[in-house]
Amino acid sequence: MEKVPMTVRGEELLRNELDKLLKLRPQISAAIAEARELGDLKENAEYHAAREEQGICEAQIRDIEYKLSIAQVIDVTKIDNNGKVIFGSTVTVIDVDSEEEKTYQIVGDDEADIKSGRISISSPIARGLIGKEEGDEAVISTPGGDKVFEIDSVKYI
């Protein structure tokens, strides 16, 4: 089974979500039991809704447990990184053409959220930045053409 990289923050978020779902299980079971008491199960909307909620909850639990089982949690604060861009690092880049500054954290696929500045390790931007150092330039192919970014800073937080 191939391991999938994940940040410490990503693992923590998944574990919190799993805990929340596991605490929801007894509530759903109680709702099913209560709905059963209402009579004929064929025409009991509350029963069917509770069973559907149970199915969704169980599927989410299985999904999170699977993700955690294949996760390789990487704590960048404990890695000798020599100032290079690696998985989990936070990189500030400057677009050479527009002088626009952007900051990205390179994270696992499930953790990616471009609005929050977290990009997937498999994204073109991340692939173009990996292995570079402060002061280096990275040429990244985008749908709008090649973009050149200068790496302003690399942090491991």
Rank of each mutant, 00 (worst) to 15 (best):
D63M: 12
I79C: 14
A49P: 08
D80I: 11
G55D: 03
I79Y: 08
K84W: 04
I64W: 01
T92Q: 03
E52N: 15
I70E: 13
A49R: 13
E58M: 12
V76N: 04
Y66T: 07
G55V: 10
Y66L: 14
Q60C: 15
T90C: 08
E65P: 03
V76A: 11
D80E: 11
K67S: 14
T77A: 14
K67R: 14
I56N: 15
I70S: 07
D80P: 11
E53G: 01
Y66G: 07
K84N: 02
E58F: 05
V73Y: 02
A71V: 03
I61C: 11
T90S: 07
A49Y: 06
R51L: 11
S69V: 10
K84T: 09
Y66V: 08
F87Y: 10
I61N: 05
N81V: 07
I86T: 12
G55L: 10
G83V: 02
V85C: 05
S89L: 07
K78P: 03
N82S: 08
K67C: 07
I61K: 00
I79L: 14
E53V: 01
Q60E: 13
S69A: 14
V76G: 10
T92V: 07
Y47W: 11
E58A: 15
L68K: 00
A50Y: 00
R62I: 07
D63K: 04
T90E: 10
G55T: 06
I74W: 00
I86F: 09
A50G: 09
I56W: 03
E52F: 15
R51D: 14
H48P: 11
E65W: 10
I70V: 12
I61S: 10
